[in-house]
Structures are given as structure tokens and as C-alpha cells.
Amino acid sequence: MSGTLLAVERLNLAFVSAGQRVPVINNLTFSVAPGESLAVVGRSGSGKSTLLNLLCGLQTPDDGVIAIDNESFGNASDAVSIARWAELRRQLIGVVFQQANLMPALSLVDNVRLRTHLAGRHKQDERWWLQRLGVGDQADRYPDRVSGGQAQRAALAMVFAMSPSLILADEPTGSLDRHTADEVAESLFNVQVETGCALVLATHDSELAACCGRVLDLSAAG
């Protein structure tokens, strides 16, 4: 799998509901190259968020392999795997959710500072990143004192500031109005291209999905 940052092979995951096995991810195989962007689309409940959780080790598959930067993970949930996934999330994988990406007790800049600290980066360029994402003037405000769009920009600044190789974004503009969503998406793609990190974007927004290099439709997959 050389030349790929993320490789997923025959991934399977099912939930058990009322005694019935309900498959969520069914024999899924795909890969993402460094710097590439991939949109994961599908109807509600098709497993977009679950897939992103699997890709950063927050959930464990029933079967299959996930390889990140040539390091393979199966369905083992032993302490070593858990610790390794945590290290990858700290240093290589940036995760952005639809909302609540920031610690409410910390200012925007302190949130970025905390995230980069955990990533082991000490460049002290937090304000620069907030500036770059258009919320530099809000750096010292708290998350509940800025708009939803500004909070999402700060969350993106936080992720980019840690210099990740892979960004997993789960409906990052889902809670924003169209105009703000477009602005946030534009910032996301621009900086992603600039930094050269890969992006896996889960969305039900076809316009947003179209901005990505490739589209993976979970409704059709498997």
C-alpha cells in the first residue's frame, strides 16, 4: 500500500439491535493518498460518522484492516492498539465534528494551544492560525461568545495548527447557514491544499462533496 496515507480493506462493522445483527459498514475497501480529499456521502444512518470513528480508532471494526501511514490495525482492541491509536490522533489525525469541538472553559487561542501542545508542537503560532482562518480578532474570546461559524473556523485552525497528515471532518458545516457554511468550507479546502494534508469529509451536502477530489457513497458501497 505504498503511496497511500490511508488504506481500508474489507472493513466490516455491525450493530446488534433487538437481537438482530444490523450491518453498518459492509466489506468496505478504499484508500486515500497524501494531500487527497475524499467525500464520504450517504443517506442518514448509512454509517458516515461510524466510518470516521473507525478511521481514527474511536471504534473498532468487527473485521478488516485500516492502515495509516503504513501501520495496520485490525479488530484488536488491546491496550497497545488503543495507545497507538491515541498517539496517531494526537499527532497525525485531526478530527472536526459538526459542533462542540472546543473546550468551553478555554478561549479560542487557548483551545488551539492545548491541541498543539497535545500534538507535541511548540511553535507558538496559534494566533497566526486563527488569523489564517479569519478569526484572529476573536482569539481571546470564549467559544460561547462567538458565532457558530467562528467557532468552526477556530476548530479548523486548531486542527491545522497541529500539522496533521489526515483530517477527518464529520459534517463540519452541518450546523451552519448556507453562506457561513460556504465560507467555512472554502477555508477548509484552501488550507488543506496549502498544507498538503489528506481530508476525509463526511457530508450529506452534495455541493460540498463535489469540492472533494473523490466521492465515496456509502449508500451504494458494499
Binding site: 473546550m103 468551553p104 472553559a105 478555554l106 487557548d110 494551544r113 492545548l114 501542545h117 497535545l118 507558538q124
Partner: peptide, 21 residues
């Protein structure tokens, strides 16, 4: 804990802020 950047521990700062809240 944020003032002395060289020894800054953002986690400590977060805990202090959480406690303040």
C-alpha cells in the same frame, strides 16, 4: 500557567479554567 510560555501546560490551564467555572 499561560504566562510563562516555555513551561506552559495548557492542560493545567484548562483544569484551572474548568474549576473557575
Amino acid at each position: 500557567s499561560g504566562a510563562t510560555a516555555s513551561v506552559a501546560d495548557p492542560l493545567r490551564r484548562w483544569r484551572a479554567r474548568e474549576l473557575s467555572v
